[in-house]
Design a protein around this nucleic acid. Structure first.
Length: 468
RNA sequence: GGCGACGUAGCCAAGUGGUAAGGCAGAGGUCUGCAAAACCUCCAUCCCGAGUUCGAUUCUCGGCGUCGCCUCCA
């Protein structure tokens, strides 16, 4: 089975193969650290996570670079307001971002380059574009000359004539040859040096434009042609279009072979979650409201196919939490000693489900469909366990199925394995009371444990506990 | 106005030219000291209209509706 991915560049599903056998060079658009990221941002990050995990499942070694954009107009503005340098200002949000990623079990990238630490690379890129006539300088600002790159618009399918030369372009304060030209380098404003936001360059003190850092850092660590470049659909234009233009104008080579774009997370009303609208929830908000981070992860990664919009909704979050619980429940039951029974049927079902699960993931990362296959078997397996019909063969096959899914989901492992001794003692005391058929005492202890957030489940093989 | 995506049960969400996975919620039941969990049963004809076809939810056209992008955006 081969991995097929939807490539925005061609607008079609394509068989994936990296340039170098066995190794994938992956670049994913990281955060601009000017504020706390919201769960919509993390939907994107978890899409990257899903892709990377599946590439690894598929046998590839993945070199993953994700940028940290720590210089931009908003950071500049906020830092000035807070009377801090941009580094001081952005450090808080950068740290929070990494904490949130860890909470969501994001598989870390290999390299997280910061824009401010690659000014030299950026200057080299801008210099090259100027030398070749792909850019021009106006009074300390440098712009990319879109007319010099005929393929402009190929990714976003925007016809250049169709890019309305009106609206916001008219308000642009810079003097550009053409409305669609974009800044590669911006002249320093007054006080920028005090904020730590001005660097010397052949065109005078200034800072990089928005798009250039991605080109510079991607090529720095991954070479001139990437295998996969990911981002949200809202970055297709102008960000990715501009990345392509400036990178390919510089190298004369394709910048990225596969462009993958994830759809947005929407609020309850269906509107895209975004900071400017204010309809956002941060991970911190959700945790404070008592939501399990693992359920949030499941919701964001498996709640919908990555190219479909996903609506943020309490019921959907609850549904995610229940699905995680059911998977964990079955996983726990499969730790028991298998019976000596003939279980060819169940084993076959588990193996077939695993093949179908794999095929779903190979088909453009269709995890929601894959989970359908998994849950088909979850029910069958539980029924068989109820009847004591699970032997060693099917037990192994079922565990393999769950492991295969968990290679993407990463929801089975618990954050805290242990139980406080005092609570464990209460469970033991309850078991003794039950053995003596002193159900009043047993029920009292169970209720008390419930108040401590521990739920009990009695089974033939003993009592199981879990956090509520 | 241009480009693009989407409209499947109370909710979330897959999918297919031959009469629609899965999950949540809900109802009834089995099991259990009671619970919980688990299991069993029930719960949709796929926005509307026309067309193509032996047959369309799936293809085409036209509506209606929702959303995204059109230089802040994951």
């Amino acid at each position: 089975m081969t991995l097929t991915l939807y490539n925005t560049l061609s607008g079609a599903l394509e068989e994936f193969a990296p340039l170098e056998a066995g190794r994938v060079r992956l670049y994913t658009c990281g955060p601009t650290v000017w504020n706390y990221a919201h769960v919509g941002n993390f939907r994107g990050n978890l899409f990257y996570d899903l892709l990377k995990r599946h590439l690894r499942v598929s046998g590839y070694q993945v070199t993953h670079v994700m940028n940290i954009t720590d210089i931009d107009d908003r950071i500049l503005h906020e830092a000035a307001h807070a009377r801090q340098t941009i580094r001081e200002y952005s450090a808080t949000y950068e740290r929070a971002f990494f904490e949130d990623l860890e909470t969501l079990r994001f598989m870390p990238a290999d390299i997280y380059p910061r824009a401010t630490e690659h000014i030299g690379d950026i200057i080299e890129l801008v210099g090259g574009l100027l030398a070749d006539g792909h850019a021009y300088e106006v009074d300390g600002d440098v712009y990319f000359r879109v007319d010099s790159f005929p393929a402009y618009g190929a990714l976003s399918k925007l016809d250049r004539a169709g890019l309305r030369a009106g609206a916001r372009v008219a308000t642009d304060k810079y003097e550009k040859e053409s409305a669609s030209d974009f800044a590669l380098w911006k002249r320093a404003g007054e006080g920028d040096d005090l904020l730590g936001a001005a660097w010397p360059s052949p065109w005078g003190a200034g800072r990089p434009g928005w798009h250039i850092e991605c080109s510079a850092m991607a090529m720095r660590y991954l070479g001139q042609t990437l295998d996969v470049h990911c981002g949200g659909v809202d970055l297709k234009f102008p960000h990715h279009e501009n990345e392509i233009a400036q990178s390919e104008a510089f190298t004369g080579l394709p910048f990225a072979r596969f462009w993958l774009h994830n759809e947005m997370l929407a609020d309850l009303s269906g509107e895209k979650m975004s900071k400017s609208t204010g309809n956002i929830a941060t991970l911190r908000d959700l945790l404070a409201a008592g939501h399990d981070p693992v359920a949030i992860r499941y919701f964001l990664v498996a709640g919908a196919h990555y190219r479909s919009p996903l609506r943020f909704d309490d019921d959907a979050l609850h549904s995610a939490a229940e699905q995680v619980r059911r998977l964990r429940e079955l996983h726990a039951r499969l730790q028991e000693t298998p019976r000596e029974v003939a279980d060819e049927g169940l084993r076959g079902e588990a193996e077939s489900a695993r093949a179908r699960y794999r095929a779903s993931l190979d088909n453009d990362l269709n995890l929601p469909q894959g989970m359908g296959h998994v849950f088909d078997v979850v029910r069958t397996a539980n029924a068989a366990l109820d009847r004591g019909r699970v032997g060693e063969g099917s037990q192994l096959a079922l565990l393999r199925l769950l492991d295969e899914a968990d290679a993407h989901l990463d929801v089975l492992r618990a954050d805290d394995e242990g139980l406080e001794p005092r609570l464990q003692a209460m469970i033991d005391a309850r078991e003794r009371a039950r053995a003596q058929r002193d159900f009043a005492t047993a029920d009292r202890l169970r209720e008390s444990l419930r108040e401590h957030g521990v739920l009990l489940e009695d089974s033939k093989s003993g009592v199981r506990w879990r956090r509520s």
